[in-house]
Design a protein around this nucleic acid. Structure first.
Lengths: 145, 145
DNA sequence: TTAATAAAAGATATTTTTGTCTTTTATTTT
DNA sequence: AAAATAAAAGACAAAAATATCTTTTATTAA
């Protein structure tokens, strides 16, 4: 099992992709994004529509339209994307799927896993959507293959 | 998204359950296990058959039969269960699903996530199947709800 | 050696995730 | 206004994960 759903993997990669394209001043169409992150175009379209509805990314229809991310949104944490797509179970859920797992009713992995969960959350909460724009423009980081 | 598949959650809970029953000297039937960890009986049966085929747990058919875990297997790491069920992608895979993500071709989250992956693996590699037998017998840990 | 027990195996069903294709709506340019 | 562009929305399809039910096989006990 991967840590994120396929949907969420595509969402994160697309958001990074759009962010760094926006940083160069241009909007970007679904076709370019899908090809830039190697994802199925129409499936990605659904995901971006959803993120757009939730106000995490922006879009404009028609000629010279496309997706972009406005400046304030560039400093939002990646955790908001993950939460919008996969929910917050990765941040708060029990490793063994127990609904009532807690300090006073712990599963065997509770304490260890809580620390891991927190670390995952910390990683996503401290990296912003625009964090990697420079490295992406320089081609130092990969979003496909 | 949860960190493990449902199948894997059931597998881990069942293995802990069988381990601590074994520690009390008795074999345990699928019905008792399913009820002891609050899982669908027949679905769990499949999972245990698989673990049994792979030699991670043992079983005996017929009256007074049931599942058990022999002494050497009690000190096996939990990571073997996880790997048998969910594969090793949680331990080695890229957070963004990129097949070729690596030191020399990293995704944006590569370094941070590698540390997290390693920590997850460490947790599972250092906890053995029998680790929690005492606390389970004393009712200090939960495997259901 | 028959009946009872319990896991193994097989077949099927449901739900969720992932992916594709088509139509509609908004916007811009000619 | 008409044509072109591009996202939004809707309908549908395939695959994978989860779940249920039935039959078979192995073992034990009467």
């Amino acid at each position: 099992m991967a840590i994120f759903s396929k949907t969420c993997e595509y969402a994160i990669r697309a958001v990074f992709f759009i962010a760094h394209k926006t940083a160069t001043g241009s909007r970007v169409g679904i076709k370019d994004i899908a090809q830039g992150i190697d994802s199925p175009e129409h499936f990605l379209a659904k995901i971006l529509q959803d993120l757009s509805r939730k106000g995490l990314i922006s879009s404009i229809k028609g000629p010279h339209g496309g997706f972009y991310i406005d400046t304030p949104a560039l400093s939002r944490p990646l955790s908001e994307i993950v939460e919008a797509v996969d929910g917050n179970s990765l941040f708060v859920g029990c490793a063994l799927g127990l609904k009532q797992c807690s300090e006073i009713n712990p599963c065997p992995l509770h304490n260890e896993f809580k620390a891991i969960r927190n670390r995952i959350h910390a990683m996503l909460a401290t990296t912003t959507i625009g964090s990697f724009n420079e490295e992406l423009m320089e081609g130092l980081l990969s979003l496909k293959k």
